[in-house]
Design a protein around this nucleic acid. Structure first.
Lengths: 345, 345
DNA sequence: CTGAAAGCGCTTACAG
DNA sequence: CTGAAAGCGCTTACAG
């Protein structure tokens, strides 16, 4: 309240509280430990004393003894992607609900999260989650040595890798979108991929391509959009300049689809949803904005995050790595032509 | 590499390294402390031993002694706003460059960041930065007691408050936009504000209103858009339904301006930039997308973040709170009518 | 239920 | 330059 300068009372320790409540420091510790054995009224007395001096157990000291920090590390390459920022937002909230804090790692290299691998070791992290970014061997090694469980988000683990993963259903998604587009009568397909290293992008693209081929169409032309707006805009430009211009473009994520729509409309004068169909993957908030009205394969951020938190909890308890796939759903809007009959279900 | 299960070597401590290098544990500590006095070749020997066993100083233990964690807390209400996610991204990178880590706090209450105030106390944070969200008295009190310097980002501190702040130039921004719109011949103004508690929004709105009034126009009609797309869409709807429909709308941030554009265009069939002018504040990446081409007052995320990091560094060193205002620039695109003559400079 | 004591892995005066 | 020792603020067996 008032403007005190340097004569603030020193921050209280368990010892201070013990003295006030006339108990041992151990008792104070127990009073703040969920299942510990303390007599109801000594605990009460202790908590009152703590309240009086504003005591809070020091997490740092607590971590030193317990060996865990109650902090989970999160590595993100491209927070600016709304799908990831929405995830980060929700993840922070959900982790807080179970008493976990989130330490954020980032990188200016958008291709692969080069999480400063050694840092991870130094914080006794309860877990490390990689948001839609690749796990370098170095980081994997460090985490293994430090016994920090790794969780891949929006990306499946390599078969046999000792890491957990929570992923959307890329295969079904790619096929659903392809089926929808085929049913709408398209015949010249293109795929704007994410970065080459992204398994999710690969899965989306190849399942899409597989379906299209099964239907007897030429395989999709592929351009790389690097998971970014700018990258995808360039890719779309390439595609639309071709003599054999595609009439349906699938983008490995929504952000890229928005770029493709913008380019098709503003640079080529195409009516998206009539002259050309463009679809994405994720269902970010912008997908439903009237300027885009994007047909896409929706992933539930809520479910992905919930699952992630659940996995963190169980692997913290020593469980084996868990690998899950969360189903998505096709969301039909207006950026792609709609089939005459509902044969594409 | 190989699949070891539980027989991993225990994680090395300074003691292990000391034994290997045949020095005291203190020596190991010194070898890892920048300015400490160690003979060049003992240091070398120690570092080799450390390398061999993969030793890294434990930050938790280090924090316990030093009293600081090298972690800065960041509270964000609405990460999904691209202005804030861009900031967060950059902040993480810049902090890492000076050896600081970022602990993320969030909230589902978008109005005021109710950072779990007591948590802040428990981590010996080097600083707490509040991204575009209000500082509750409770949090302020906790930070003061724990001697955690507070930095307000994108928001000015209350006069006399013992906190630092890094803010854009809301006053100049509001006036510039008003001048631009007046010069374009507009006469019926509206302002879509952010949440009521936001000082930044207030400043933008009142400086805008002041200029407009000075020019002899009626004061802007105000609707609250809550800093969100949905909120602003509703606000825009209200405005455009009025008998005295405004011909120029200023939105307190770009995100809301995009919503206003969408509503004006898709629900009212207005040609934005001709029938109506809509301007924003921030210059987020989407502002330059062709679908919006938003005229706005640009804030430099890079400069804001740089300044934030600089302030963190100096207040960590015990300096007094610093309050800075970073100038912005008017960015003219196509969402607003352009004046005939360049009289608005 | 409760206290005394050891210890988590470091840093930092203090002597040498 | 280097080591022995104390101590950071807690938790956790171990006796009582």
């Amino acid at each position: 309240m008032a403007k005190k300068s340097a004569e603030l009372p020193a921050i209280a320790t368990a010892g201070d509280v013990a003295r006030m409540a006339k108990v041992s420091q151990s008792a104070v510790s127990r009073a703040f430990t969920p299942g510990a054995s303390v007599a109801p009224d000594t605990r009460k007395r202790i908590l009152e004393a703590a309240e009086a001096v504003g005591y809070q157990p020091d997490m740092i000291a607590r971590s030193l003894m317990s060996g865990r920090s109650n902090i989970v590390g999160v590595g993100v390459g491209n927070i600016v992607n709304p799908f990831l920022s929405a995830t980060l937002d929700l993840l922070t909230i959900k982790l807080a609900e179970v008493g976990l804090r989130l330490l954020l790692f980032s990188t200016d290299d958008s291709s692969i999260t080069q999480v400063p691998a050694r840092e991870v070791l130094q914080y006794r992290l309860d877990a490390m989650v990689l948001l839609a970014s690749a796990l370098s061997d170095e980081l994997a090694g460090h985490c293994a040595r430090a016994r920090v469980p790794v969780i891949l988000y929006n990306r499946q683990a390599q078969a046999g890798a000792p890491v957990s993963s929570v992923s959307g259903d890329n295969i079904t998604g790619g096929r659903s979108l392809a089926a929808f587009l085929c049913a709408s009568g398209h015949s010249r397909f293109a795929f704007i991929s994410g970065i080459a290293a992204s398994l999710a992008s690969q899965q989306r693209g190849s399942s899409f391509g597989a379906y299209v081929s099964e239907q007897g169409h030429a395989p999709p032309i592929v351009e790389c959009g690097f998971h970014t707006y700018e990258g995808a805009a360039a890719a779309a430009r390439q595609l639309l300049l071709r003599a054999d211009r595609p009439d349906a473009i699938f983008c490995a994520n929504d952000m890229m689809a928005l770029a493709a729509i913008d380019v098709a409309r503003s640079e080529f004068g195409l009516a998206v949803g009539r002259d050309i169909s463009i679809v994405g993957f994720d269902d970010i908030a912008m997908a439903r904005w009237p300027s885009f009205s994007l047909t896409t394969y929706a992933q539930s951020t809520a479910r992905l995050v919930e699952e992630t938190v659940a996995i963190i909890q169980s692997v913290r308890g020593g469980a084996e790595p868990i690998q899950t796939i969360i189903p998505g759903t096709l969301v039909v809007r207006n950026s792609a032509r709609t089939p005459k009959v509902a044969s594409w279900t």
